[in-house]
Amino acid sequence: KKKREHFRQLLDETSAITLTSTWKEVKKIIKEDPRCIKFSSSDRKKQREFEEYIRD
């Protein structure tokens, strides 16, 4: 659960993310961040979390 919170925090702090951002764009920006790396090695899982984040 904590990894998820850190991942969401990373998304919060990434000012380039807007409601129209695509995962492909965002992934390029955040892929080097340790919170992104630690969250999951599964790209699909990160994408799902990102899409949920955008909906919230």
Rank of each mutant, 00 (worst) to 15 (best):
K1A: 05
K1M: 11
K1Q: 09
K1T: 00
K2C: 15
K2F: 13
K2W: 00
K2R: 09
K3A: 06
K3I: 09
K3L: 11
K3R: 09
K3P: 06
R4F: 07
R4T: 07
R4P: 07
R4V: 10
R4D: 12
R4H: 14
H6W: 05
H6L: 15
H6C: 12
H6F: 09
F7C: 02
F7Y: 10
R8Y: 15
Q9C: 03
Q9Y: 01
Q9S: 08
Q9W: 00
Q9R: 05
L10Y: 04
L10R: 00
L10V: 03
L10P: 05
L11C: 02
L11Q: 04
L11W: 00
L11M: 03
L11V: 03
L11P: 01
L11Y: 00
D12V: 05
D12E: 13
D12S: 10
D12L: 04
E13W: 09
E13M: 09
E13I: 01
E13G: 00
T14R: 00
T14C: 13
T14A: 07
T14S: 02
S15E: 13
S15Q: 12
A16K: 10
A16F: 08
A16P: 06
A16C: 14
A16T: 10
I17K: 05
I17G: 03
I17C: 08
I17V: 12
T18L: 10
T18W: 00
T18G: 09
L19W: 08
L19I: 11
L19Y: 08
L19P: 14
L19Q: 13
T20W: 06
T20S: 13
T20I: 06
S21W: 00
S21M: 07
S21D: 02
T22G: 03
W23K: 10
W23M: 00
W23P: 09
K24Q: 14
K24G: 12
K24T: 10
E25K: 02
E25Y: 02
E25F: 01
V26Y: 06
V26W: 00
K27N: 01
K27T: 06
K27Y: 14
K27C: 09
K27G: 02
K28E: 15
K28W: 07
K28Q: 15
K28Y: 03
I29L: 14
I29C: 10
I29N: 12
I29S: 09
I29G: 05
I29D: 11
I29P: 09
I30G: 01
I30V: 09
I30T: 03
I30P: 14
I30F: 05
K31R: 13
K31T: 11
K31M: 13
E32L: 08
E32F: 07
E32G: 12
E32M: 14
E32S: 11
E32R: 07
E32T: 15
D33L: 15
P34K: 07
R35K: 02
R35C: 02
R35I: 04
R35Q: 00
R35T: 00
R35G: 03
C36G: 05
C36A: 07
I37G: 02
I37E: 13
I37V: 12
K38E: 15
F39P: 02
F39G: 02
F39A: 05
S40P: 04
S40W: 04
S40I: 01
S40L: 01
S41N: 10
S41D: 13
S41R: 14
S41F: 06
S41Y: 09
S41P: 11
D43I: 14
D43H: 04
R44A: 15
R44K: 14
R44M: 12
R44W: 13
R44D: 11
R44H: 12
K45C: 08
K45H: 04
K45G: 10
K45P: 08
K45W: 10
K45T: 15
K45I: 14
K45A: 14
K45M: 15
K46R: 14
K46S: 03
K46D: 05
K46I: 12
K46L: 14
K46E: 06
Q47S: 08
Q47M: 05
Q47H: 05
Q47F: 03
R48M: 14
R48F: 10
R48A: 14
R48C: 13
E49V: 11
E49M: 07
E49A: 14
E49P: 01
E49L: 01
E49I: 07
E51C: 09
E51S: 07
E51T: 04
E52Q: 15
E52K: 14
E52H: 09
Y53K: 04
Y53F: 09
Y53S: 07
I54S: 12
I54E: 11
R55W: 04
R55G: 12
D56Y: 15
D56G: 08
